[in-house]
Design a protein around this nucleic acid. Structure first.
Lengths: 347, 347
DNA sequence: CCGGGGTGAGATAACGTTATCCCGAAAGGT
DNA sequence: ACCTTTCGGGATAACGTTATCTCACCCCGG
């Protein structure tokens, strides 16, 4: 326990060690004094500089241990200019988000620390979070953008912010981004259902003001048009409310639909919940824990979260390395996982 | 795009503007030069100091706008001594974690920024993350502790770290913590099932090396003992593997169990998955999205995530304000939500 | 015996803020 | 008219690091 620390906690005794001002954490100066060396030498030891003799190094290490010295990264970062930190501004930290996991992994592999915060799908909060990260001079930011107006990013980008958008692009701004191949996913789902005999297929999706929702809905319309089918009563988009989705399901059935494609995992849940007895074929967008809990298991279009996260970090690092590099947009392939619900034939 | 040679904003063409060193973000000195005032005055304006005249203030604001100046929090924090930042080290950022959400909310209300990172249930990673946050001099840390050995925290705490443990205590160390009333939850579940006629009740839980798992399992054993029942074949704990849980279920049935209490949400899923046809009454620990998706809906013991998160931030703030305050351990009540699965009578 | 590389270590100046002092001028009292 | 008070605003010193420069020293060959 406390070896030399007998004065340490109990008050106002003025020993050599205790000369530092009240309760202040020890600094390099304190270590230098304790070890009887120059400030710069302590810095050298801390940074594993080879040009310091072994005897002095030992003295310094002892002093560090005796004082429980911990370097202050704020000062370090200030002096260095970089922080070795990436920010992640995501919709909800506390929601399931496999991409964020992949982002953390990839960043860790590159010896970067990821610090994350929620934007709660609130444009103002997004701005608050991102600007806060900028003021903290994070080296880069991974952002799941919300809403349409990202003008506030312009001066930050001009000032040198490195940014990569994930899942959705930053509309109107030239920013690197990584997005799933929504169109291919919808096409695969549609093709899968037609291959199993379905001719009338409905789509129930999220609010089309959301980029991915819009993209998926458009892809669906294009698929139907390409097959020469009709769209009446088959496309339902809007905010996620159980009532809306139940009504959409009813309308689709009345219109003769025998299968449904959903726009995201939450909607899949509602659709399953709303189609208790009467069996329709279902292909959901986004894989989730729920998919293998249902009977039959849910056939889904799964995004490659691992690839998305790793690519995001790649883009961010190369952007940090060369801020003038041309903007890149990466589309990551999706995969259809057939599990049962999408293979049911029409009645 | 515009490189450093061009004027960055087409609007304001002050020759002064471009004088700043290559690509460097503008600093207070640059703003002061641009506005023709002293450095200190810029600081005053930025911090809304009332003692600055309105004319000078305007000049400064204009200069800030012209240069797109953003204060550097690293320097600010270094000078101020505090960072206005809390760290959250949780098991998995990308898992559902309502407590983290409540933590973010409560912190935001107190004008503190929460930056979160995953520990991935890895003791070494936890240490890495926490120490990193300490070196960044975060004002406080919310921690979901892993494993048994938290000795590395000792010097940090002595040096002034403010810490609060959530969901589990930090074993062997005097640290504030907020924990659900696991015992009361198990008792409530047990009482609920007996009230509905069950006499043989099984418990399937997580690995007892995990604190909460141990606490819940013990509470279950105590409940059974209190009711004068036998434990043979009724208590199954261990790592979460589908196979183990299916076997546990079989054993329990063979032992005459007509109802199951689960140790957490993941196990609830596996139990539901494994008890397809034959109906047993189920009470799950932890509420989740799944609970209302099943038929019948899952009766659960729900933790008060909101209260846990808010309490954690309260404790942390008061610890920051008075580092010598006695250690507090808060137990937050749980609530049994009857939804159907726990009200089925024995066959 | 002396000059020329290395080489280990110290003094000092940044990095971008805020806090402490201090001063000049305007205002008010006698 | 002069002295005191207020008050806006500027110089300058921290905060805790790292980078640059310098220097003292030692080991050799000439």
């Amino acid at each position: 326990m406390a070896k030399n620390g007998d004065h340490e906690n109990d008050g106002h005794m003025h020993g050599e060690v205790n000369k530092r001002r009240k309760n202040r954490r020890p600094t390099m100066v304190d270590v230098a004094r304790e070890a009887g060396v120059a400030l710069r030498t302590v810095s050298r030891v801390v940074n594993d500089d080879a040009t310091v003799g072994s005897e002095l190094a030992k003295r310094v290490h002892d002093a560090i241990a005796a004082l429980d010295y911990r370097p202050d990264e704020r000062a370090r970062h200030l002096r260095l200019g970089v922080t070795g930190t990436l920010g992640a501004a995501v919709r909800q930290l506390s929601h399931v988000n496999p991409v964020l996991r992949a982002v953390e992994r990839a960043a860790r592999a590159a010896d970067l620390m990821v610090l994350a915060a929620s934007t709660e799908d609130d444009e103002r909060l997004e701005r608050r979070v991102v600007e806060s990260m900028c003021r903290r001079r994070f080296d880069g930011i991974v952002l799941e953008p919300i809403g349409a107006d990202h003008g506030y990013l312009l001066p930050e980008l001009a000032a040198g912010l490195s940014l990569v958008a994930v899942d959705r692009p930053v509309l109107g701004l030239e920013v690197d981004c990584v997005i799933s191949d929504n169109m291919a996913g919808i096409q695969a789902a549609y093709g899968h259902l037609t291959a199993h005999g379905h001719r009338r297929i409905a789509y129930i999706g999220d609010d089309e003001r959301i980029f991915t929702a819009q993209e998926r809905a458009s892809a669906f319309r294009a698929s139907v048009a390409g097959a020469g089918g009709g769209l009446d009563g088959m496309v339902h988009t809007g905010p996620i409310e159980p009532g809306r989705i139940a009504r959409a399901l009813t309308t689709a059935r009345a219109g003769g639909a025998t299968a449904v494609i959903t726009g995201n995992a939450t909607i899949s849940v509602e659709v399953v919940r709303g189609s208790d007895d009467r069996r329709m074929a279902i292909v959901g967008f986004d894989d989730s824990e729920l998919a293998t809990l249902l009977r039959p298991d849910l056939t889904v279009v799964a995004q490659d979260d691992q690839a998305i996260g790793a690519t995001a970090i790649d883009l961010l690092r190369s952007r940090i390395a060369d801020h003038g590099r041309p903007v890149t947009r990466v589309t990551v392939p999706v995969e259809l996982l057939a599990r049962g619900s999408g293979e049911q034939p029409p009645p």
